[in-house]
Amino acid sequence: DIAEHLTPVLLDDLREESLQLVSKLKDSSSSCAVDVSTVWWEAAGSRELCVVTACESFVSLWKPLAPHCWGKVYTWQLGEIPVIQLVPLPDTCNLVCIALGDLEIGEIRLLLYSSENDSLKQSLVKTGNIKAVLGLRDRRLVSSSRTRQEQQVEIVSLSETGRTRDGQTLMPPEETVLAFAEVEGMRDALVGTTAVNSIVVWNLKTGQLLKKMHVGYSYPTSICHRAYSDSGLLFVVLSHPHAKESECCGNPAFRVIAFNPRTARSRGVVFSSLPPGHAGRQGDVTGASAAAVLTSGAIAVWDLLLGQCTALLPPDPAGPWALARWATTGACLLAGQRDGTISLYRY
């Protein structure tokens, strides 16, 4: 009967063995790691899950050479605009998508390798004042961008060679869209979270804006990570990077909220809070697992269905953790330090 409850988290209960260090890679030329991700890469008939590391001015692809050993195979040099984010593309092979900009995204580019002339290529997908971007199934990208007068929400399809095909626009809400999530199990549904803390739902096929539902004032600037539909309800996983600690709820990091899209009413289902004594977080979600870098330099991992913190990776002696991303497949956590060291943990 308790819609939203705080599960007490005791650090003693956290099973350190739930995260097992598998391997490390270190880019000796790097001193400014900004993001890490994984991508499927096929070469000479062999398809492998590779690691992509991004610094401000270059992006590198790392292949597994031997067990627990990674080798850098390609490095794309970028121009004057710094890389600020890698954009994972689900179900895609041999394509790396990056967002570049200063304080916010100004460009989206694709990076690829051409075997025809043995060269590394870059392809410009979009420019503008881009507020959010997400890679969708079937080699598509959705983004929101603002001009002074209006907001544009656009989907572009990408070819295998990195060319962009005709775009499709979605009806924009009045407020700025800050994050997107595909609705799992519903091919044509997409959700977004906005600057005034609303969830919006689109029909991807028709571009219609179907519903706008308010998340509530307790958790400002909520960010959607995952969404799925079940039994007539829309479940959305939200993170709350700026929520303040409260007596009733502790320090909220993630919530699963059930929305009834017919009535726009909602209820919290599971609540995941920060471990006691920790603050600040920048999170990533895969399946029912969430990970976040805390301001202490530790990484916390939660089971979102239980609402429990399941692992806490203390700051590495060589330097605090700065990045926490899930690999696009398998239960693998990519933990990064600013000096370019990436540690792969099995979860």
Partner: peptide, 23 residues
């Protein structure tokens, strides 16, 4: 979650909202 909290639930909410929303 129950209907008393969230109002009438429809399994076909996506199709229904698509039929009702402006094109």
């Amino acid at each position: 979650c129950s209907e008393s909290d969230l109002g009438p639930i429809s399994l076909n909410w996506f199709e229904e909202l698509s039929a009702e929303a402006p094109p």
